[in-house]
Design a protein around this nucleic acid. Sequence first.
DNA 1: TGTACATCAGTGAACGCGCGTTCACTGATGTAC
DNA 2: TGTACATCAGTGAACGCGCGTTCACTGATGTAC
Lengths: 205, 205
Amino acid sequence: MVKKNYHHGNLKSALIAATIKLIEEKGPTGFTISEAAKQAGVSAAAPYRHFKGREDLIAEVAKQGFSIFADLMEYAYDKGNGSAVASLEAIGRAYLAFARKNPGQYIAMFESGVSINADPELASVANRAMNVLIKAADELSSNMPTEIKPPSTMVSQHIWAMSHGIVELYARGEPGARSPFTPEDLLESGLGIYLRGLGVLPKEN
Amino acid sequence: MVKKNYHHGNLKSALIAATIKLIEEKGPTGFTISEAAKQAGVSAAAPYRHFKGREDLIAEVAKQGFSIFADLMEYAYDKGNGSAVASLEAIGRAYLAFARKNPGQYIAMFESGVSINADPELASVANRAMNVLIKAADELSSNMPTEIKPPSTMVSQHIWAMSHGIVELYARGEPGARSPFTPEDLLESGLGIYLRGLGVLPKEN
DNA sequence: TGTACATCAGTGAACGCGCGTTCACTGATGTAC
DNA sequence: TGTACATCAGTGAACGCGCGTTCACTGATGTAC
């Protein structure tokens, strides 16, 4: 609220914060740059000092989101303490927690149609997150009976898909209206069944 | 292309078709009613004879989409010929095929933020689709060792989530850029592992 | 410490544009007799 | 079969509005000396 200054001071982050909020409310194509400027308490022309246009703004939100996200994934991975299964479960929880706490970033990252490979910096930070999951899936292989060992990229994509699907279908929209189970329950149980199918979890569990 | 008529004849369906196309291109919040009208070859005021506004248009697309979708699901279910596992696999394939062939409807149904429960007709047709999956999951239970039998709504949500996640993450965007596996492969393998985890599929398969 | 100046980060006015929505209207169609 | 009329489904002009984007500008800040 230091409004009186001619120089905003940190307009760039203020614009990003406004964009996150607007994406949550109106979707990645439903807001205007002018709106973001207004929310940051600045003239409509000001954003152009920092961003080329809306695409650019969204890409920045996604980049920042992926960076936080990758940190969380790595942190969760470490919580597994050498157990790949424990790591995966922690990663799953972290995934849901991130999506719940940062819907704006999540949308920018996964639902905005932003081209991740267009910006090398963005691609790199997105890969950092993905690689945590691949690493965990890789380690799973060592526990796994070889006759049914699928490629670890495939395993990581199965898990990612289920997590993402749960976020989209059951962690959004009218609260509670959609499912008798919490997203957390759904992911934990689904992941458990899947891991059992891989043969890395015993039957009774 | 019967443009010269003062009366369009089937403006409503022409507008729906235009909307589907526009949603594919610009997302559910990225197009305007005027654009849809223009594509249908009609003045900007004409759509108001048939729809209240954009929300209404999208809801209609979703409704139509769910109807086709539910038919496909039921048809796929029947292909299982009494085997729940076979039904589920056919349903999975049908799911991906629908999402691929009808991206506009799919987006309207699952990604537009349209409130499914607001319109009873829409809610009913959406439930029809959902129920096919629940029925199949239910039948799975009979094959299942009771000590690890999860509720069938939960099973159906796991499967739905994985399918939806695969569509969103791997069946869209830059073609082929994202995964070495086809969406179909991913879903088939993922579903297989999951069903093995449920104990309804033998280990070697 | 003071001053002159370059640079930075905003302003605000202007432009052309397309949108949403309303409204009186009108051309086409269907139907009662 | 013909005609009169009601209804339907579009038109096009109008409105106020907010957007994106450019531009010359200006106030604040940082720094060399």
